[in-house]
Amino acid sequence: MNHKATYITGIFAILLCLAHACRKEGRSMYNPDAYTLQLPEGFPAPVYDFSRNPLTRQGVALGRFIFYDYRLSRDSTVSCGFCHQQFAAFGHFDHALSHGVGGQQGSRSVPVIFNMIWQKEFMWDGGVNNLEIQPLTPFTDHKEMGVDLKELMQKMQTDPRYRNMFREAFGSEEITSERLFKAITQFVGTMISGNSRYDSVMRKQGGAVFTAEEQAGYLLYQQKCAACHKEPLFTDLSYRSNGLPYLPSLNDVGRMKITGSTADYLKFKVPSLRNILRSSPYMHDGRFFDIYQVFDFYDHGTQRNDNIDPLVRDGIQLTAEQKRQLYVFLNTLTDYTLINNADLKEILIE
């Protein structure tokens, strides 16, 4: 009788131990898969601090779903991906100015958003100081997605798919702005362009070499463009006035709006030339639809203002042949592994 009781107690104790172990297992169920970013050879270290927001497969997947979810805009018409189209290198094809909910139009063109992890400031005027908080602007701007952030999160919280994806990415169903923005940042962080024909030539991959015309164009680029559109990002990320005539209808003062300094009047961030032939129209207000218009502008269209950059003060003269060579070179900057990347493709929601 005595040892029967001992047996029962013993089994009970073992069960207790097992249950304890199981509970521990259950608690550590949240175990997202690490996601390793492939950084292009020769690129500098990213500016974005991933230690604050470690990339996971689930986090990137959630960010991608959010990025393409048009239901997140006020009238369920536009998503992030609506303006940032993959085939246009995440710019907006054929639209000079951005547009959003209710058919409203913004005052600048949609910037391309690849290689963002190498930027320390965002938007044409550098007004946004961290990649993580960049989504705040398009979500809340009444000319873009036009939502109230609190209402948006309440709406997302009612969707079982979102609850599930937030749990997978962050360990619980709770949707907070911090998680929302970090997930978007994770997805946008994976939009990397460093695998164009130009890159193959530079890395001598598979014996890739420029054609004679491409080579001539590359030399021209180095002489006339590279000071601002610096390799390997093809931008030095500085703010400059390139002599683009001021348009009274848009009254865009550029970076001066951010710094309050007249020294920044009409200055805008130097855009990357990567994927440039895929991401027309050009300039902060999208006034040029064809790259040859840009060549012509630098050749004879710049207008001097007090802040014009010394490098373009006298324009950049180009012959017809040079324009063609430059065009052929710029074509080598198109990165098909970006614009055809299946992992970045639009998700059709409902």
């Binding site: 604050r52 961290n130 990649l131 993580e132 602007t137 911090e178 923005f181």
Partner: peptide, 24 residues
């Protein structure tokens, strides 16, 4: 805390006290 990315709690952006166009 003005320039190190998205914050939570009292500093969360949904309180409407974080400028969208000129961070801070």
């Amino acid at each position: 805390r003005n320039n190190s990315g998205v914050q939570s709690g009292a500093l969360a952006p949904e309180h409407g006290l974080f400028w969208t166009w000129n961070s801070g």
